[in-house]
Simulated scan of single mutants.
Amino acid sequence: MNKFAVGAVVGAISCTFALEAAATEWNVSVWGKRRAFTEHVEKLAELVAEKTGGEFTMNVSYGGLSKNRENLDGISIGAFEMAQFCAGYHADKNRVVTVLELPFLGVENLDQEVAVARAVYAHPAATEEMAQWNAKLLMTSPMPQYNLVGTGEPRDELAEFEGMRVRATGGLGKAFEAVGGVPTSVTATEAYQAMEGGVVDTVAFAQHAHLSFGTINQADWWTANLNPGTVNCPVVVNIDAYESLSDEHRAALDSSIPEAIDHYLANYAELLQRWDSVLEEKGVQKVEVAPEVIAEFQSVAGKPIHDAWIADMEAQGLPGQELYDLVVKTLAEAKGGS
């Protein structure tokens, strides 16, 4: 082979390596099935691929990479590059963001939920705690206030919560416990079986999850306005993977987050608009809890649980009061601008 042919072969090989080096493929661990809760992840993957001409792709796996309670562990060891998890699944690993799971914070809509989550995620304490798991907080998975579905007679008086076996995690679990309920933190994917088997009487979920995980199909009633709180479920990326991205690919990822969240919010709004028709279709009674019952619930499970959380965090060396005040301040600003 003459030197010109050799040069051509070497050049072709070098070009191939360059193309391979330019390509980035990430694995993303979520669970269940594609639903409103994962639409921002799907949109993010779509936008990043578009912006990079297909050089940066994300493979979104629904349970194929890890169990939902183990996603943060998987991120920490680099088993995959991106994952979604819920703070209540392992509150000891993500103490800072559990401030967003406190009951009766007063969040009224998903825009406000996004605002308070962004503020907490940007706090140095959140960044530092997640770094212990080699994780970077990328975006939240905003969910409306949770409400109960249950079997039998509706529970619309506080006395009826006594002994109620409820699927509720994090701060929500503590709220129901404060009024005599018996919370269990089975995962979302286990909730239907828990309800079907009589392990729980009621399940606290956002609307999309009652649909996706089938609990609405077991339900006789739904509390339309109890609104005790919600859970916080971040999407995180492995720090090493994030930092190894080229400038172009990192910019494509970062710049796509706002649009991914906007897509999520628009999609969820459509689901909420048709929720009443879903209840009617499935024969589920819509229960309106009396204002005085909600006020009583809030007095028992609101401020006392907030104060206990602050004290617990401060005792662990975390800025509990500062984080709580940040949520209150950000929420007031969000309401003022809405």
Rank of each mutant, 00 (worst) to 15 (best):
G7D: 06
A315P: 07
G32Q: 04
M143D: 11
M164I: 03
D325N: 08
A36L: 05
S246T: 03
G63P: 04
V231Y: 12
I305T: 01
I75G: 09
G214P: 12
I239C: 06
R165E: 03
G163N: 04
K33L: 11
A115P: 04
R34I: 01
A83P: 02
D276K: 11
A251P: 08
R34M: 08
N217Y: 14
S256F: 11
V182Y: 01
G173F: 02
G163D: 03
Q273K: 15
C86P: 05
A135S: 14
N227E: 09
A91E: 10
Y324H: 10
D254F: 09
V289I: 13
V149L: 05
P228C: 12
V235K: 03
K93L: 12
V237K: 03
L271Q: 14
V278S: 11
A252F: 05
T223M: 09
A266W: 08
A135M: 06
W275L: 13
V179G: 11
V10T: 04
E70T: 04
A159L: 06
N227C: 10
K43L: 07
I13R: 12
K51W: 01
E81V: 01
Q321I: 00
A209E: 15
N232Y: 13
A175W: 00
A266M: 09
E248T: 05
E50S: 03
E46D: 11
L105A: 10
L326E: 02
P124W: 03
M195D: 06
A18H: 07
E162A: 12
F104T: 07
P319E: 08
T202P: 08
A168V: 03
T215R: 06
S212C: 14
F56P: 04
F205I: 03
D220W: 07
P304K: 09
P234R: 01
V149I: 09
T127A: 12
E270R: 15
E20R: 15
E281G: 13
A290L: 10
L148P: 07
D276Q: 14
T151V: 02
E55N: 09
E160I: 00
H90Q: 11
Y264L: 14
A269P: 15
F80H: 05
D220A: 13
E113P: 07
I261N: 12
K335R: 08
E46F: 10
R69L: 00
